[in-house]
Every structure is written in C-alpha cells, then in structure tokens.
Write a protein that binds this DNA or RNA. Structure first.
Lengths: 103, 103
DNA sequence: CACTTAATTTAGTGTCAACTTAATTAATGA
DNA sequence: TCATTAATTAAGTTGACACTAAATTAAGTG
C-alpha cells in the first residue's frame, strides 16, 4: 500500500491534483481545466490516485466527482513516523540529559 | 526537496537500504551483501539517497560508512501533515500548485 | 434511435531510471 | 611503485511511465 501511495505522490501533477480536490469534489474535466495536458492524461493520473486510495470518485450521470481521501495517507504517515519518531525521542532524551547536567 | 525525498523513497530497494542503516552505519559493501544486485547498483542507490538527504556518509580510508539521516524525512512529513491535519497551510500548497501550472 | 456530453481505454511514442559489465578513482600496504 | 581493496563513474540495455491522438464506453436528451 505504501508502495502505491509513494508512486502516486511522486508525480508532481498528481500532487497538484490532490491539492485541487482537497477542499471538495471536482469533476474530471474541472480538474483537467487547471492543466495544460490533455483530459486523457488527467484521467490516467486520477486512476493512479484512485487505485492508491488517495482519492475517491462519486458517479452522477456522465460526470465523475473526485475528492481527496485523507485516510489514504495513513500508511505512509505511519511509515515515516517509524523513522521520525525515535529521532524525536532521542532529542527529548538529549534535552533531559542536558537538564540533568545543568542541575 | 519533497520531490527528491519521494523519488528516493519510491524505489523499494532504497527503502530496504534505509532500514539497514537505520540503527547504525554500514559500508557500501556491507549494504550490498544484503542484496542480489551488483555493488554499482547499490552505489547508485546510495547516491540518490544521499542527494535526497535521507542518508549521510562518513569516509574512513577506502571505506565509506552510510547511516540514515532522520531529518531528511522532515519535509515529507510536513507535507503529509498538511493533508492529514486540516490546516491553513494547505492554501499555500494550492498557491504553489497554481504557480507551477502557470509555467 | 441518433446526437451530445463526460470520461475512459487503447495504441503508440519519447524519456527516464534501474540495472549490467567494464573502466576508473582513491587510499593503503608490501 | 606496484598491487590490493573499496567504491564509484561510464556506457549501454531494458522496462516503466507520462504523454498524445484516436477509438470506445456510458448516460442523458432531441
């Protein structure tokens, strides 16, 4: 899952798309109107984003509304925290050691 | 920077390398011994990791010791948190995306 | 049933990234 | 200085992927 999340996020336009659908849902063509590339290219990006779980789609007639799916970031966030958190822990420990040294 | 971080992390072997050098430093060849691919391939991965800021290297004679650099995750973590937490900083993202689209 | 709108899928192209082997750099020791 | 060890850089191959234009699906509407 983290594999797909990272792959989806690495492409800059997909990150831009995510910013666009963060606040609310937008149709495929509404999203495409913000870019210079063609609608099929956007559609392909949306597919990658959807398969990664970073966006969800709602169908209404011929239109498809995309919006961000926050929980899609959970796994990647947890992965990073495995590296990040104990560095914070060590900073905390160092600070505490420093405190003790001062006294 | 987040660009380079994501690119570095997306390749599975580079994530494996990061796990290896998480706890302490290892030489290039010690790292390579954990994989089936050749030493030059590992060297190339290490270069990408170093340029992304996710590892640092210490030279001693002909050997080069690599270790993880936790601060390298900071930007990516902040990026994810902008989506994860509802924050006004998200507006900054949108503005930056708009700038990129204009170019 | 055509016709239109919205979007996707298909097929093909150019670029880039992850390998390989071979050559090269760099430090050290006989 | 020559040889050895550690690692990287160089050159070339292959496969993946972000595009494009064209064809296709799907859901209304006259």
């Amino acid at each position: 899952m983290i594999e797909k999340t990272l792959h989806a996020l690495t492409e800059p336009r997909r990150r831009d798309i995510l910013s666009l659908v963060h606040d609310g849902e937008l149709t495929s063509s509404a999203i495409a109107s913000h870019f210079e590339i063609t609608a099929p290219a956007i559609s392909q990006h949306l597919k990658v984003l959807e398969e990664s779980g970073l966006v969800v789609v709602r169908r209404d007639g011929t239109k498809r509304y995309y919006r961000m799916r926050k929980e899609g970031f959970a796994d990647l966030r947890a992965y990073i925290d495995r590296f990040w958190d104990d560095s914070l822990l060590r900073l905390k420990e160092a600070a505490e050691a420093e405190e003790r040294r001062k006294k």
